[in-house]
Design a protein around this nucleic acid. Structure first.
Lengths: 150, 150
DNA sequence: TTAAGTGCAAATCATTTGCATGGAT
DNA sequence: ATCCATGCAAATGATTTGCACTTAA
C-alpha cells in the first residue's frame, strides 16, 4: 500500500475525505494486475481490513471513477469490472458465442482515439476497452450450421 | 409487418418454430428506427398482439440475437437495448458525465473493423457500437473543477 | 403426435437507497 | 463541532428459471 500513497492522497486533494474504506478500495485496485468486480474488491479488502461494507465499496467506486482514478468496463459478465487508470492500456476482443477474451494492444485503437478527439472533441475512455463480436473459431462454426440447414 | 415476411421466415429456416410471439417481437424491432429495451418491445407488441409474456420476449430476443437478426447494445442505461441488424450502421459516443449521446457514422470505425479482421480474424460487432468517454463540454468542466481545488 | 415454446410466478443478483450513527477535518 | 461518509437492512429492477400447459410442425 505504501507505493500508492500519492494515489490515495489525490482523494483528499480533490476535496473529499480520506477514509480507510476509500483508501483500501483504491489500494486493492492499484495492486491488482487486472479488472476486479465489486464483490472481489470487497473480499480482498476484507482480508486485511474487515471493516468494509458493500455500500461503501460501491460508493467508493463511484467516487474513484468520477475522479478518473479508476475505470469501469462491462465485459458482458453481467456485472461491472473495475481497474486502475493505468498506462499502457490493453483492450479486449470478447466473443459473444464462446465468451473467449483476447487481449490486444492499445496501438490498435490509438488511431481511432485520435480521430474521435480531432473530429468530435470527444475524449474516448479506451482504457480496457471491450469490443464484442465473433472470434475466428466461432465464425467457422456458424458457417457450418448455416450449411446444415440450407 | 408484411414487409418483414422474409425476415420472419428466416427463423423457421434456421430450424426454429415460428411462433406469433417471435414473429411480433422481430416485427416490432424491424419497424423501429432505433434501439428498444425489452420492456418497450413488450409494450409495443401488446398494442396489437396482447398475448405476449415478458419471458417470451427475453427468450425471443436471445434467439434472434443468436441468429444474428438483431443486436444488443448497452448504452449504460442499466438495461440492454436491441436493434435490427441493419445497414448502414451508426454508432454512439456516450458521455459518462452528462450522459449525452452523439451519433457518428460507421465510416469512422471502418478502418478499425478491418484491422481487427485482418490482424486477429475477429469479426467485431460494430453495429450500433457504444464508445464511452467525456464530451467536449464536460472536459472543460472537469478542468475548471481541478483548478478550483489546486 | 410430440418436442419445442410459452405463461406464470417466484427466484436471482448486482446495485441503490433511507436513515441513524460514526469519524475525518 | 460539523457534516460528510459509513453500516445496515430493505428496496429496486432487469433478467432468469422451474414447471405445468400449449401449440407449431
Amino acid at each position: 500500500m505504501a507505493q500508492h500513497l500519492e494515489l490515495v492522497q489525490s482523494i483528499r486533494q480533490a476535496g473529499h475525505r480520506l477514509t480507510p474504506q476509500r483508501a483500501s478500495v483504491l489500494a486493492v485496485i492499484a495492486e491488482s494486475e487486472c479488472h476486479l468486480t465489486a464483490e472481489e474488491i470487497l473480499a480482498r479488502v476484507r482480508e486485511r481490513y474487515p471493516y468494509l461494507n458493500k455500500s461503501a465499496v460501491y460508493r467508493s467506486l463511484e467516487l474513484l471513477t468520477e475522479l478518473g482514478l479508476i475505470h469501469q468496463t462491462d465485459l458482458g459478465h453481467g456485472r461491472v469490472e473495475y481497474e486502475l487508470h493505468r498506462h499502457p492500456h490493453h483492450h479486449h476482443l470478447v466473443c459473444r458465442r464462446c465468451k473467449h477474451i483476447q487481449q490486444i494492444d492499445h496501438a490498435v485503437l490509438q488511431r481511432l482515439q485520435k480521430k474521435l478527439a480531432n473530429e468530435f472533441g470527444f475524449h474516448a475512455d479506451l482504457d480496457h476497452f471491450a469490443i464484442f463480436g465473433t472470434c475466428r473459431k466461432c465464425q467457422t462454426r456458424a458457417k457450418r450450421t448455416a450449411h446444415a440447414h440450407s
